[in-house]
Amino acid sequence: MCREPGQTVTVGLTQEFQAQVGRVTRFRGPTPGSFHRQGESLVSLESEKWVGHFSNPIDGTVLEVNEAWYRDPSALGSCPWREAWLYRLLPLESSTARSGGPLSEGGPPGV
């Protein structure tokens, strides 16, 4: 998870975790405009014989979903901040992010 200027939060999977699960074939994400609490399962990914469900790390409203996951998930690169981000949301000001797990923390250099 990465907080960006303007307080937008970008959520992606760590590169280590992506490497463990292999080529992704299916993706289900949240609906833009919807509000979700921390801990709600918002994203599912499927690679061969495995489905991962990932919880929302922070209360907020989904601004955008990376639709490239729907078009061709196998073609995505592994950087969770550039090609392979999952969704962006606008967090509640009072909300504190949950840390740990396969969701990435940090971000690209300079952010």
Binding site: K49, W50, G52, H53, F54, S55, G100, G101
Partner: peptide
């Protein structure tokens, strides 16, 4: 047959 998942960490 076997399958995997990640659920609630």
């Amino acid at each position: 047959g076997n399958a995997g998942g990640t659920w609630e960490d």
